[in-house]
């Protein structure tokens, strides 16, 4: 135990001195021992980074868009969190989104970290809040979170992000119809990736038709290969952050994030309690197995 205490101190000091390796260890702590991570994070001052959630169905080019964004970033410090799903059967995961950003792996200003969602409710990593705090404590200007892109993760990113970017691809023809109700509501801006595709204009007009009447959501056309349209997107993202910082929206967002962070801690505690629960000397797993067995028996008798 004393051993980990030393490591914690080292991480704390390293985080203060912006040591990259300490951030790497800090993020591991967020995953493996979130309580300990929160303890350290409480002792660190945090920068208010612009937390940008990037969401959209798999294959729309989220990672490629992020890579293009990084191409255009000059001197800004960016933390990138990419979340991939864990297998519900083995717990294993293939964290593959990083590949498209590998050309930025050695850039001193960028720090890319892959997370498995570990089957978390909402599809984001259970330690996403801690990870986000860690990047802020490290002094990142922006923190970009890329979601898995399926199910709840698309919507839940709004619980943590200051700005939600919904990425659409003209290749997915029925994208607009498929836009889930929740997704429409959380989008702060839309990006149509692959602007060189002739269908992107069709998608654009359809999207305009759907969004008009609701809140005004700006739509951007980008080309991840040539980088076209990305600079305008970045400028507007910065403008937006400045705006929400001054008009009180950011404060609301941060309150919401804190609330969800607290909820996630409570949920973790409850999970922990359930896992360790014993009824008549038997733990949850044993009880579950017995239940399954009895249900199967009943099935057999019925047949």
């Amino acid at each position: 135990m004393s051993n980990t205490r030393v490591r914690e101190d080292e991480i704390l000091e390293g985080m203060k001195s912006h040591d990259r390796r300490s951030l790497a260890k800090m993020l591991s702590l967020c995953e493996k021992a979130p309580d300990m991570a929160n303890e350290i994070l409480d002792k660190l001052s945090k920068k208010t980074s612009h937390v940008i959630g990037i969401t959209g169905s798999p294959g729309v080019g989220k990672s490629t868009l992020i890579s293009t964004i990084l191409d255009k970033m000059n001197g800004k410090k960016i933390g990138i969190v990419v979340v991939d799903p864990s297998s519900p059967f083995t717990g294993g995961a293939l964290l593959g989104d990083r590949v498209r950003m590998q050309s930025h792996a050695t850039d001193k200003n960028f720090f890319i970290r892959s997370f498995a969602n570990k089957g978390a409710l909402g599809g984001l990593s259970p330690s996403i809040y801690e990870a986000c705090d860690a990047f802020e404590a490290f002094g990142m200007d922006d923190v970009i979170i890329e979601t898995v892109g399926v199910g709840q993760s698309e919507v839940d990113v709004a619980n943590i992000a200051d700005t939600v970017v919904v990425v659409l691809s003209p290749d997915n023809g029925d994208e607009v119809q498929m836009l889930k109700a929740g997704l429409m509501e959380i989008a702060d801006l839309f990006v149509i990736n692959k602007s060189d595709n002739p269908r992107s204009q069709i998608l654009l007009s359809r999207l305009r038709a759907v969004t008009s009447g609701n809140k005004e959501v700006p739509i951007y056309l980008t080309n991840a290969v040539t980088g076209e349209g990305v600079e305008r997107l970045l400028d507007d993202l910065d403008d937006r952050f400045f705006q929400i910082s001054s008009n009180g929206i950011l404060v609301q967002k941060r309150k919401k994030r804190l609330l969800h962070h607290a909820q996630s801690i409570v949920r973790r505690e409850i999970d922990h309690l359930i896992q360790n629960l014993e009824i008549n000397g038997r733990n949850l797993k044993e009880i579950r197995n017995q239940l399954i067995e009895e249900l199967c028996k009943k099935d057999d008798q019925n047949n």
């Binding site: 293939l94 590949v99 498209r100 050309s103 040539t226």
Partner: peptide, 10 residues
């Protein structure tokens, strides 16, 4: 022309 970035399919 730019450079191609692979799509990883595992």
């Amino acid at each position: 022309f730019g450079e191609y970035k692979e799509s990883i399919m595992l």
